[in-house]
């Protein structure tokens, strides 16, 4: 492998096996000699740590800049409220009100203020934790504070903590909205995990549209695959999307999962499957 690679694991539908696949891939990559980072960007419900069991050795708070208004300097011109797209600052009856949790931290209000009455203060809304899973595997995840609504800045903070490992595996949140885009933007390859159900394939279709829009090379993993359920297979064939592997519907995987064990470590036959998968991805991403 010549260059450093960042691979994101995403899916339209929730519960298709993103974390199982991404954490197993991270272990497989580390075991085959790649210096690897697993980055859990599902900051609303990170769960990769349950399977990788890292030792956390560093923790830092993440904040976004929110406006603070000096009422003495403010002339109540209202320009701050006009530029804000999120109603985080509003001028009524010669008063300027701010709503911190609505703020996306763009800084527009302080830029347009003609009297420099607005300064920006950091408001913490989550934490990034980094650690070690032994061998070649580093661990990082973000945890959004309860009640917070904007996760993208925290996801970006998780992505920024990559410390020059050869391979970074990003575990994205489900869906196709802003948090997912923040997690997969600029990665080298997206692995879309689906299940062969109508729900899984419907949401896979939306996820494929998203990665195409972002122009990222991608392939599909069909998880809980059953030979006679051909929906996902047919969709990929009709749309010229490569299926990298089909992971069979296997009760042993579910039993391992229920004990917090990855199939890669706990179920016979899967070590080889994921080692082959990481090789395939590296080859595909290098094209």
């Amino acid at each position: 492998m010549k260059q450093k690679l960042t691979i994101a694991v995403a899916s339209g539908k929730g519960g298709t096996g993103k974390t199982t696949v991404s954490a197993s891939l991270a272990c497989a990559a580390a075991d085959t000699g790649h210096k690897t980072a697993y980055m859990d960007c599902d900051v609303e419900e990170p769960n990769g740590h349950l399977f990788l069991k890292p030792t956390i050795n560093y923790r830092h708070m993440v904040g976004i800049p929110v406006p603070v208004v000096d009422q003495d300097k403010c002339t109540a011109c209202g320009l701050c409220g006009e530029i804000c797209q999120f109603s985080a600052i509003v001028c009524v009856n010669k008063n300027v009100l701010t709503f911190d949790k609505m703020c996306h931290g763009c800084g527009g209000c302080s830029l347009v203020c003609p009297t420099e009455a607005i300064t920006e203060h950091s408001r913490n809304f989550g934490v990034v934790e980094t650690g070690d899973c032994g061998n070649n595997l580093k661990f990082c995840h973000g945890k959004l504070d309860v009640g917070e609504i904007h996760s993208p800045p925290l996801i970006e903070a998780v992505r920024e903590t990559a410390q020059g490992e050869d391979l970074s595996i990003v575990d994205a949140s489900p869906g196709t909205s802003c948090p997912v885009v923040a997690a997969i933007k600029g990665v080298d390859y997206v692995l879309l995990v689906t299940e062969p159900t109508p729900f899984g394939v419907n949401d896979l279709e939306i996820a494929v549209d998203m990665v195409k829009e972002l122009g990222i090379p991608h392939g599909v993993v069909i998880n809980r695959s059953v030979p006679e359920h051909t929906l996902a297979r047919d969709f990929c064939r009709d749309n010229n999307i490569k299926i990298l592997v089909e992971i069979p519907d296997d009760r042993r995987v579910a039993e391992a999962y229920s004990k917090g064990e990855l199939p890669y470590k706990g179920v016979e036959g899967y070590r080889e499957l994921f080692k082959e998968l990481i090789d395939t991805i590296i080859e595909e991403a290098g094209r």
């Binding site: 999120f86 109603s87 985080a88 509003v90 001028c91 009524v92 009856n93 009100l97 709503f99 609505m102």
Partner: peptide, 28 residues
């Protein structure tokens, strides 16, 4: 997408009304 209550309150405040009568009014 967000802040409809705040924006509506601002909209109303421009019409120099002294009171608003409505069904449900949230905190912001």
């Amino acid at each position: 997408s967000q802040g409809a209550g705040i924006q509506t309150a601002e909209n109303i405040s421009r019409h120099n009304v002294e009171a608003v009568i409505t069904g449900n009014c949230g905190p912001k």
